[in-house]
Amino acid sequence: PELPWAIKSEEKAKYDSIFDSLNPVSGLLSGEKVKPVLLNSKLPVDILGRVWELSDIDHDGMLDRDEFAVAMFLVYCALEKEPVPMSLPPALVPPSKR
């Protein structure tokens, strides 16, 4: 059976509104646009670097809506002292990227 995405729809809606507030270009946000938002979490830069690596699934230097939701989810987990994993758990991979 299809593994449900770890990000629930109400969380996704919250992340989507942040995504849209950052003015995505053709549905993508550049690293420069995302960086201030993630730095706002006051997390150490090496943690944010790992969050980026895990969420920029296609490694294009940009985050689309789903990748951005993964990044935000990982940041919130890190803020609750959940260590950021070394690799993306399957349940976190957006259905669009499986």
Binding site: G31, E32, V34, L48, G49, W52, E53, D60, G61
Partner: peptide
């Protein structure tokens, strides 16, 4: 993927 990642696509590295 490598945890350190490449600075070309990662704005934090």
């Amino acid at each position: 993927q490598f945890p350190t990642g490449s600075s070309s696509t990662n704005p934090f590295l």
